[in-house]
Design a protein around this nucleic acid. Structure first.
Lengths: 111, 111
DNA sequence: CAACTATACCTCGCATACCGAGGTATGAAA
DNA sequence: TTTCATACCTCGGTATGCGAGGTATAGTTG
């Protein structure tokens, strides 16, 4: 069925993947490293999340990939499609909205 | 097995429930309303999330409840236990950490 | 040359979280 | 008497995240 919106809970992996791959072409291993680095270790996608997520996003037309041989090793480079970018905008807006909501609740003292 | 930590994705419902109920005693319907209000509609826990979550948290000793009859209607009031408050601290710290991580990735231009 | 480490990909199956839809019952208002 | 707001509840589906495990190559080190 047609993929309902990520509701409350995050879909953070989808979000950050699209964000990275909207910026530039990257391959799996690369993404994992970048994610740890950029988020100061706060985020880390294990391979059991990463690869299935990449495949799913590609199948949905949000990413496209090309394989390249680099120094004997095979790499699959992904980047966001236009559709993926549009999706990213939606997800990012959503995420900010909900994260601000959480922040308000964490911050307030509700007497 | 013993309940692994909420990993990447949020466990936002658990977090916000504990936060509200660390502050004051509330009952289900009340919580739903407060949540919408405080978060400016950004968060809304449907009853299919809310009640099971409350039961689960109570079963884990993070909340305790008492029933009261108010104007003919039965209400079950919940509040956070000390253990629940400690859990809240952990979850809140976790959430900030990961939300900052996401923010960094959303914000940066990764050239 | 054997081991080991880093790179690079992959899948399977478990657990659990979240959600919508549906169900019950009361009191007040129309 | 019907409807609305209050107030609770459960069931079943789905997807999602995750760990563990598996393959293979290139380079390093003893």
């Amino acid at each position: 069925m047609s993929k309902r919106d990520p509701t409350l809970m995050s879909g953070v992996p989808e979000l950050v993947l699209l964000r990275l791959l909207a910026q530039r072409e990257m391959y799996g291993y690369d993404i994992a490293r970048a994610l740890k680095l950029l988020s100061h270790e706060a985020l880390s996608l294990g391979e059991g999340v990463l690869y299935p997520a990449l495949h799913a996003l590609e199948a949905r037309g949000l990413l496209r990939s090309r394989s390249r041989q680099v120094e004997g090793r095979m790499r699959i480079y992904y980047q966001a499609t236009p559709k993926g970018r549009r999706r990213l905008e939606r997800l990012a807006a959503n995420w900010r909205r909900m994260s601000e909501g959480v922040e308000r609740i964490l911050g307030a003292h509700h007497d």
